[in-house]
Design a protein around this nucleic acid. Structure first.
Lengths: 113, 113
DNA sequence: TTTAAATACATAATACACTTATGTATTAAT
DNA sequence: ATTAATACATAAGTGTATTATGTATTTAAA
């Protein structure tokens, strides 16, 4: 099952921030492959979504970059800035609470009453 | 905490379908209030989002409507069609799986291996 | 008693985030 | 030699929600 893109909307920044929080530095293509692996292809990060998001996070001062050359091919590594580390924790916590709230609403978890 | 609207995006239809699956018939304003209550104000359904969504679900044949008058004030009740009932289950199941996948990704739930 | 808040619908303009499509270029595999 | 994978990037289009606005009735508060 591949999730409808509607669901994934709004979680992309959270995913990127969390992956970078755990991996110190990653490059764009690596992020797409990691997400593919962990989610067993159920979440497909398209490059058209990822690269603009990385640029936006960088513009917000949450990420820093360093460019490396692998042979003649460019590789742009992203890392969390101090501000980005804080933001990563915030986002993950927010998502955890969001899940709990949605479980109340969808009664996936039985409600006390 | 009020969730960033980014997160809520894409879950609105799921929420509406699930509420109707449990309540037989509901009207728009009632849905907004029910969501407010269950989520303790953490999810705010705006009318500008809800009404167009209800109309879209109706246009898709997932909802049927009946109008009632409370005094002089109109009240439009929505119910799930058979197609809507199926869709409601699908959406809730999809969301449950989405949560699991995201938990793997965000390591909220500790990963084996 | 009149004014504000709550109930109840609706739509239009705007903003945002993602998809789809396209483009360039290098390296590895068939 | 050709295709697939790696690796970046941007532009046009779409969808979904936000914000703003509008109408009207009913209830509560000043």
């Amino acid at each position: 099952m591949i999730f409808s893109s509607e669901l994934i909307k709004g979680t992309l920044k959270t995913i990127v921030l969390k992956l970078l929080a755990e991996n110190k530095k990653m490059y764009g293509y690596e992020i797409t492959q990691t997400v593919k692996e962990i989610t067993k292809d159920r979440i497909q990060l398209t490059e058209g979504a990822l690269y603009p998001t990385l640029h936006a996070l960088e513009a917000d001062g949450l990420l820093t970059t360093e460019t490396e050359y692998i042979g003649k091919r460019v590789r742009k590594y992203y890392s969390l800035s101090p501000k980005g580390k804080t933001k990563a924790k915030e986002r993950v916590n927010e998502f955890a609470e969001f899940i709990e709230t949605m479980q109340d609403l969808l009664a996936i978890k039985p409600k006390l009453a």
